[in-house]
Amino acid sequence: MSEIVFENVSRTPRAGVKGPGAAAWLTSLGVPVPDLPNSWLPLPGGLVARLGLTEFLVEGPEAAKLAAPPVHGVYPVLRQDTALVLKGARLNDLLLETCSVDFRALDRAARPVVLTSMAGVGVTAIPGDDAGVPCIRLWCDGTYGEWLLETLAGVAADLTQSSQSHHQGATS
């Protein structure tokens, strides 16, 4: 199947926090903190991503813990993202048409988080694979979300159509 499948997971509970005290605060709430900047850890039903040095995104049931009142050096970040999961054999072709980061060169074992621009929209991206099928999780500002989804779906549709018509051209 050459189709790229889109799943809209915007409604998944999530919360954000940033600041010099954020890492310690999360630890005090029982949320594990990834060691390295721009990496993530799985959580029951979700994940915690370290965005750069001192900002965190927590997704899943654990996000409820971040409703606790912040302390000094802790700045809550209201997250209202459009969140998508894309999956498909030709996913990398879609990424090559929309983003200048070489996702295939990343060391997956390090669980990288990539903050970049896709089709001109700022995104947070976590590449992965699901039983060998490439997939990627994307978060972007919700006000760009509809446009980004429409645009990526358009790119995916063109790619599906071109696979089906056995389009000639250099392999990627």
Binding site: E97, G120, D141, T143, W147
Partner: peptide
């Protein structure tokens, strides 16, 4: 190319 021109929409669009 495609000419990406991102568009922002409010929740009440």
């Amino acid at each position: 190319g495609r000419g990406f021109t991102p568009e922002r929409r409010t929740p009440m669009h």
